[in-house]
Design a protein around this nucleic acid. Structure first.
Lengths: 222, 222
DNA sequence: ACCTGAACACCGTTCAAGT
DNA sequence: ACCTGAACACCGTTCAAGT
């Protein structure tokens, strides 16, 4: 029986190979026909498991959310717990940088995504935000993490030419007229992130959490 | 002569019709072949103005940045000026919500985008951030505005069925098990944003600016 | 019940010709 | 110099058959 379920097609296996293809060659390489070929089956066989390609992409995004291992609730301050929740989401996104963009519009579209959102909402509600504000702040903050990964310099290129691409981009920025772009030319290194990836992500999370804390004293609008 | 330049094809005109198509039918409807047909020309004629489709998308994103009318420099506090800069970018994004996503990875890829970024960098540098921090904080903040527009409930659907789609989504969230998702079910209205769009965007900008202000006392890492 | 084959209406892009 | 036509190698998806 287990051998039978092993060789059965199944949505989970399709999503797994879609992730593998996307990680290696980018989201554009994820194709109904390509997936069918990799599984030795006709393209139409996939339509038994997904109504259309949109639903396949939904399932891929859901997998990213499902991979998030949420930290246990603790007695730490709400913003410390929030930092851990955000860090957990970040780990899952960083595992599939080329796929991360799919989650941007699908947080509330699957059970694992809802679980993550609910957790963030709860922490903000505990911090004293109204439910409307908590909902929007949590959504926006989760999206900020997604863009952090999505726009990380070099995250989208394949590792073979990544260093070359980053060097070229940095040179291009450094070559801009410094009288017109004094800050950009001065920060060309930081913008192409030859610096530490950890520093990049730490600052990103810090900024998001700082926004929440800074907004907290605000009373609900009348 | 002017009649001649009027009927000439030109990249600007192609970008304009691409924007019109995207606004009406979504980015997926923007196609080399479709653009060629609308201009009564063969698909290959477009390759005289753009090396490939990627470069066409670059040009569309550049147009959004070019449409930003930056506020004049003033003697207001840096965070007040920042708020105005962010608001100006937001206006341009809101004019083409279905196209906004293109800007996410292209801020530093065109002259108008560089101008916007330089302006934000300058304000953060004036606030006392190191150039590395200013660069990253500005980038992340501009991206936050993009996702604000990109993920605005109903922004991506056409206005005809927008209300229906939002109602359906809200009902779906409200119907979740409240013992598992107490905050989501309680904030279903806010999450599908039947509330005021202005409130939504104001809070979004507030959150971003609060993050900057909250992070400011931080000394550069050693 | 589950999969297939052929076909339809599209894509972006190359290449060799035309004028 | 500028545009065209035909072709190539793909897409997602429908529909009628097969077993």
């Amino acid at each position: 029986v287990s051998r039978d379920t092993e060789r059965r097609l199944g949505p989970d296996k399709i999503v797994s190979s879609a992730l593998a293809i996307a990680d290696a060659e980018g989201l554009a390489a994820v194709t109904i026909r390509r997936l069918a070929q990799d599984h030795g089956v006709t393209p139409m066989a996939l339509y038994r498991h997904f109504r259309d390609k949109e639903q396949l992409l939904d399932a891929i995004a859901e997998r990213l959310f499902a991979d998030v291992v949420l930290p246990p609730t603790s007695r730490a301050a709400w913003y410390e717990q929030m930092r851990e929740v955000l860090a957990a989401f970040l780990v899952s996104l960083q595992a599939h940088p080329k796929v991360a963009e799919l989650t941007l519009t699908r947080i509330l579209a699957s059970e694992p995504g809802l679980g993550l959102a609910e957790r963030a909402f709860a922490l903000l509600a505990a911090a004293g935000f109204s439910s409307e504000q908590a909902a929007e702040i949590a959504s926006q903050s989760l999206c900020s993490l997604v863009t952090l990964v999505t726009t990380e310099p070099g995250a989208t290129e394949d590792p073979a030419h990544r260093d070359d691409a980053m060097r070229a981009k940095r040179a291009q920025l450094a070559a801009l007229p410094p009288e017109k772009y004094p800050h950009i030319t001065g920060a060309a290194d930081a913008l192409t992130r030859c610096a530490d990836r950890t520093t990049y992500y730490d600052l990103g999370v810090d900024l998001v959490v700082a926004g929440m804390r800074g907004l907290r004293p605000t009373r609900p609008r009348r």
